[in-house]
Amino acid sequence: MAKHKSSRKRVWLWRVLLTLGLLVGLALVFNEQIKLFVVDHLTQTTMQKIDANTVKKNQKTPGNFDFKSVKALDVSTVGKAAATANQRNAIGKIAIPAVNLKLPILKGLSNSNLSTGAGTMKPDQQMGQGNYALAGHYMTDRGILFSPLKNVQVGNTVYLTDMAKVYTYKVATKTTVNETQVQWINDVAGKKLVTLITCASATEGETNRIMVQGALTKTTKATTKTLAVFD
């Protein structure tokens, strides 16, 4: 009789553990889906609100440029970004048609900014001048944030706009660098560049970065036609 009761307890315990494991697994799966959905929604809604007046206003706002404050995207971080969506300081847009990348550009590296689009890496940098450096998160979904950079190839075109002009760059370099190799975002005398940085994988603690760099080839006025690439 005692053995029978002990056996029933073990079966019950295993059922409880299996149920808990299933629930935890489902929570992890749906948390990831919810996170991706919210990030994509933040990206799209921010893109729709960017115009010339908004850019001029937001260019005057301060930004956070502390690399060490950047955290991996989790549900909590994304949730905070969604709660402050109306406070985002968008200053432009970026598009790379070859990999279907279209994102808002935001001033600084706050976690809310990086939950929404690409963040500027240096104070007072200007499109079409010096080395315009942007950072973004790499996620498991290749269509979210800077994940598509993994598929960029030399020769691809990168477009930036501040809603007054459209700046066209041609990718000249793509490589993997260590997170400590920050010299890639420095200005280079006589050159007008764009530098894009993202993690080499979605693994937490990843120390390598994908670095894409292009040279300015053309600057045109922002019109309905030239801005169509960002739609």
Rank of each mutant, 00 (worst) to 15 (best):
G108C: 08
L109Y: 09
L109Q: 12
S110L: 04
N111W: 00
N113F: 06
N113R: 13
N113D: 13
L114S: 05
G119V: 13
T120M: 03
T120D: 02
P123G: 02
P123W: 12
D124H: 14
Q125A: 09
M127E: 10
M127H: 11
G128M: 09
G128Y: 12
G130I: 04
G130D: 04
N131Y: 06
L134E: 06
G136I: 01
H137A: 01
H137W: 04
Y138H: 08
D141P: 03
R142K: 15
G143I: 02
I144K: 07
F146K: 05
S147P: 07
S147H: 05
P148N: 09
P148Y: 05
L149Y: 13
K150M: 03
K150F: 04
Q153I: 03
V154C: 13
G155S: 14
G155P: 12
V158M: 02
L160F: 15
T161S: 11
D162S: 08
M163Y: 06
A164F: 06
K165T: 11
V166Y: 09
T168L: 06
K170R: 14
K170E: 14
K174S: 09
T175L: 05
T175D: 11
V177R: 15
V177A: 15
N178D: 15
E179R: 14
Q181Y: 10
Q183A: 13
Q183K: 05
W184T: 13
W184L: 10
I185G: 01
N186L: 12
V188C: 05
K191W: 03
K192F: 05
T195Q: 10
I197T: 08
C199R: 03
A200T: 03
S201Q: 00
S201N: 02
A202K: 00
A202P: 00
T203P: 03
T203W: 05
T203M: 07
G205E: 04
E206P: 12
E206T: 08
T207F: 02
N208R: 14
R209C: 07
R209I: 04
R209T: 13
R209D: 10
M211C: 14
Q213S: 15
A215N: 14
A215S: 15
L216F: 08
L216N: 06
L216V: 00
K221N: 12
A222M: 10
A222W: 14
